[in-house]
Design a protein around this nucleic acid. Structure first.
Lengths: 281, 281
DNA sequence: GCGGAGATGGAATAAAAATTCCAATTATTA
DNA sequence: TAATAATTGGAATTTTTATTCCATCTCCGC
C-alpha cells in the first residue's frame, strides 16, 4: 500500500515538514530530490502556485509533485500545499500596512499611535539591513578590524549612542578601543597615537557632523583603515573609508530611530570578537 | 457592458486596491459592501480561501464574490484573489525561521552568519514591543514626563547609549533634560536639584548596575516620579517607579541588541514632545 | 547484457472550483 | 401603488486543477 515510508503521520506545520524533508534528503530518488530542493527554496511558490505551475518551475511532471507529497505521508499535493499556506498566515503585517493603518486610525496623534509608528519604522529598518548588506563586504571589514591593535570610534551627536554602545561591547569582548570624543576637546591628542596598525569605525548620518568628518579625515590620512557606518553612498565618509556600510533607517514623522544601526553595530562587534579568538588561537 | 464603473483599470497591488475599495465604500450595494468589509478585514482568508469557502464565511453567494471583483474592474474572482496573494509574497520570513536557517547553514560561524543572527534577533525584539506595551500605560507615562520641568536620565554601562540618545532627542525637541552620569562622580550634586515637579527616566537591564539603582532610589525618595525601562517585572527598578515598561530583547549567542529599547526610547521622546506642544498652546 | 524493481513522463480521468445565467426578490421612482 | 431597474440567490455550466494509471525508461545486481 505504500513505499516503505510511513503514511498518515505527515508534518502539520512548516517547521517539522522542513526537518522531515532534510532528514530524508538522501533517500529521495532523483526527481523527488528535485522537488524537495525546490520546495524548501521556494516556499512561497509552493503556497501559491498550482500543481502545474510549480511542476513547470521545478522541471518535473505534476504527477511527481503528488508522488512527492505522498512519499512524505500526505494524501496528495493539496494536502502538502496546505502546510505551505499555513506558514504564510502567521506572519505579522508589513511596514507599509501598519503605517497606513495608523494614518487611518481615529486617534492618530495619540501617544500610542506614535509608539506604533516608531516601532513599525524600526521594524522596517531592521528588516532592510539583511538585504542591503552583502556578506563579503562585511567579512572583509571584520577582518580589517580584527587585525587592528586599537579600534578608534568616531561619532558625534545622533551617532554617539552607537559609538558608546560599541565601546561598551568591544570592551566586554576584550577588544581594545578608544572613543574619540570627550568633553575636553582633546580628540586630536587621542588620535595622535593612531598608526596604520590600528583601525577606526566612523559613524555619521545626514546632516554629517563636521567634527566627525574631521576626525575621520585625520585618521584616514594617518594611514588608519576606516570602516564607516552611514546612510548614503554619497556620504562624505565614503571617500575616506576602506569599507563602508549604508544603513537606511526608515523615518516616522521625520524622526529616525537607531534600531537598525545599533543592531548592525552589535553584529560588527561580535564578529570582530569572534574573528579575534579564531585567529589568536 | 458594465455597471457604470470603470473596468480594465483594476488595482494591481494591495495598497491601491484597499484605497479603491475605501473610496467606493458607500457606492456598493448591501452584499457587495459585506464582501468589501470582509475582504479588508480578512486579507489572508481572501488570499488562501476558495470562492466557496470565502463566500460562506462572508455570508454571501460565490457569485457575489465574482460580481464584487468585476465591479472593481477585475475579470473575475481569481483575478482579484491574485492581488491578495501577491501581498503575502513580499513579506520577510520570521525570526524562528531565520535562526533555524542559520543553524543549518554550512558556514554557520562566519561573520555573515553573525550579522544575520543579530538582525533576526533584533527584528524579533522590535516586533514584540508592540504587543507587549499597552497604550494606556504608555500614555500615562508620557503625561507624567510632559508635565515635568526637567527630565533626569539615569543609566549606566549597557543602558547608557539609550540615555544619551534620549538626551539628544529630547534636547532637539526643546525638552529640558539632565543626564545623570559623568566621569567626575558628581551625580549626587546633579540630583540635588531635583524636585517633585521634575521627573526621571531610569534605564537598566540585568545585571542591574548598582549606581543606577542608587540614583533611582535617591530621586524616588525625593518625590520625583520615575519612569523605568527594564527587562523584567522583578527588576529592582520596578518598586522605585511610578510607571515601568518591560522590553524583552531577544538574544543571539548571549548578546542582546538594544534595537527594541532604542526604538521605544525614541517613541517616548517624540510623544513627550508632542504632548508638550499640545498642552502648552 | 539480462531480468526485475523502482522511478518517471504524460495522457486520461476525476474532482474541485470559478463563472455564468436566469428567476426571484428587493429597492426606486413616477 | 404600479412599473421598472437594480440586486441577489442558487443551480447549471464551464474551466481549471489535482490525481490516477499505465507504458516506458533507468538503474542495479547477477
Amino acid at each position: 500500500m505504500n513505499n516503505g515510508v510511513n503514511t498518515g503521520d505527515a508534518p502539520r506545520n512548516f517547521h517539522s515538514l522542513r526537518e522531515r524533508i532534510l532528514e530524508r534528503r538522501d533517500l529521495f530518488p532523483k526527481r523527488l530530490s528535485q522537488v524537495a530542493a525546490f520546495a524548501l527554496d521556494n516556499p512561497d511558490e509552493m503556497a501559491f502556485g498550482t500543481a502545474a505551475s510549480i511542476a513547470a518551475r521545478a522541471h518535473v511532471q505534476p504527477s511527481t509533485l503528488v508522488r512527492f507529497a505522498q512519499s512524505i505521508g500526505y494524501a496528495g499535493f493539496s494536502d502538502l500545499q496546505a502546510v505551505f499556506r499555513e506558514r504564510l498566515r502567521e506572519r505579522p503585517s508589513t511596514y507599509d500596512e501598519r503605517l497606513e493603518a495608523l494614518r487611518n486610525d481615529a486617534n492618530r496623534d495619540s501617544s500610542a499611535a506614535i509608539l506604533g509608528g516608531v516601532i513599525a519604522a524600526a521594524q522596517y529598518s531592521v528588516e532592510s539591513v539583511s538585504s542591503a548588506i552583502g556578506s563579503q563586504p562585511f567579512e572583509k571589514a571584520v577582518k580589517t578590524l580584527a587585525a587592528a591593535e586599537t579600534i578608534f570610534l568616531v561619532a558625534q551627536r545622533r551617532s554617539f549612542p552607537i559609538a558608546s554602545y560599541l565601546a561598551y561591547t568591544l570592551g566586554k569582548l576584550k577588544v581594545k578601543n578608544q572613543l574619540v570624543s570627550s568633553p575636553f576637546g582633546i580628540e586630536s591628542e587621542q588620535m595622535a597615537f593612531a598608526t596604520p596598525r590600528d583601525a577606526a569605525i566612523a559613524i555619521s548620518f545626514s546632516p554629517y557632523a563636521a567634527p566627525s568628518m574631521e576626525h575621520a579625515r585625520v585618521l584616514s590620512q594617518a594611514g588608519v583603515p576606516v570602516v564607516s557606518i552611514t546612510d548614503s553612498a554619497f556620504s562624505p565618509l565614503v571617500p575616506l573609508s576602506q569599507h563602508w556600510f549604508e544603513i537606511a533607517e526608515a523615518d516616522f514623522a521625520g524622526f529616525r530611530s537607531l534600531s537598525a544601526s545599533i543592531a548592525f553595530a552589535l553584529a560588527l562587534a561580535i564578529a570582530v570578537g569572534e574573528e579575534r579568538t579564531r585567529t589568536k588561537k
